[in-house]
Design a binder for these strands. Sequence first.
DNA 1: TAGATTGTTAATCGATTAACAATC
DNA 2: TAGATTGTTAATCGATTAACAATC
Lengths: 239, 239
Amino acid sequence: MKKDEVSFKKIDENTLLDKNDDGSLADSARSRSDVSKAVVKRLPRYFRYLRELLLAGKNRVSSGELARMMGITASQIRQDFNCFGGFGQQGYGYNVSYLYRKISEILGVTMGYRAVIVGCGNLGRALTGSVMFAKRGVELCGIFDVNPKVIGTEIAGYTVGDMKDIETFCREKDIDIAILTIPRDAALDTAARLAHAGVRGLWNFTNIEINLSLPGVKVENVHMGDSLMMLCYELGGEE
Amino acid sequence: MKKDEVSFKKIDENTLLDKNDDGSLADSARSRSDVSKAVVKRLPRYFRYLRELLLAGKNRVSSGELARMMGITASQIRQDFNCFGGFGQQGYGYNVSYLYRKISEILGVTMGYRAVIVGCGNLGRALTGSVMFAKRGVELCGIFDVNPKVIGTEIAGYTVGDMKDIETFCREKDIDIAILTIPRDAALDTAARLAHAGVRGLWNFTNIEINLSLPGVKVENVHMGDSLMMLCYELGGEE
DNA sequence: TAGATTGTTAATCGATTAACAATC
DNA sequence: TAGATTGTTAATCGATTAACAATC
């Protein structure tokens, strides 16, 4: 038996999770809205690195070790985790599988969110066939389009539904997230329709920024082109 | 003739561009490496909004007006533009087409960068058919794959090339950017090959982070899943 | 000229890093 | 116990905002 395994066994979750007597998280855990955007943006990256460690069979990791891997400081890692109450143990470090599970929970991987893809163009098709959703605990429940030639065809095991049925579908299936891969002209209307049908999250690939001021509806605007442009910027040296 | 048009005519570039006698930019313009990441990340967004204004036929815009549109402060806009020397005129504001052109230049849109897509899976196909490149002055020169069944087929007007020929192609066509939409296992090897073939920019869609420490090779790691996870985080309310 | 709006400096705010006491 | 490493506070750093003189 390796040393790590011993340590792994010795640590149980009640010790690791810094709970108060009433079972609530430690005082150091901030309320969700108090966690800064800068921290939230780093969480998915922690998720990815921890997943790697987990799949590599590593049981424990220290903030220093993780920091070296990720190219950030150990201080930042500890500060970040402490926004959510702290998941480590002094003198030991962090238990990888426990930490991975905690980060996953924070990111909603365990929530079983349900999604639809709206718009079956090239990007919609590409996403439909992707493992991205399964990896993150998001269930892709259906895909939709307005084009009669596309409706009824099959993509990656999904039959393309008619957009006119999307409200009913979202209500019945209790859809949380809609992924917008539609032409920009249709974006705002469609967003409003979906929000009205109970969808709480919009993952928007349209090249207009959606900013529904509907309370309770969150929008994540993706601009892949921005990332390309930043790369192009970097290519330009001093003149 | 509308007032804006008069103003537009009155402003010529030599007035607007704050040049020293020797033609170099004003002292206020920082060298490229002195511009913070935070500023660079905002540039593509300015590019998008200015493009909208331009297409809408607007001739001039003030920092206050643009700030309202974009949901940021006018101070930030002026600070950001001043990293590159300042493109406005006191009492007038900014000339939209001039500012758009300047931001475009900074972002390399006028550099005529040449790109290849490496990996013709779903995402590679989706990108091949996209107008993203043309809009940003990037020329898509070729697409490649390793799969014999895919090689030689046509996607959006491009014939899929054989990966074994990619080095030669990149050298001959003087390719600047490679877009990696390949399986993760092939990512590091392929990145090294491309860098060796003179490619200076890697737009990496692989889910491992590439961090070639080759000087002069820039990498932009795209993690679409991170954006989905941030949306999922936002969906989780207080418990 | 008077009004407007920039460019730029100074003040504030927030995020990162360093340090160390707590503790496993 | 001694060593290690966290959780957390204090110090530093950088980014954003406010303010205003410069000037078109």
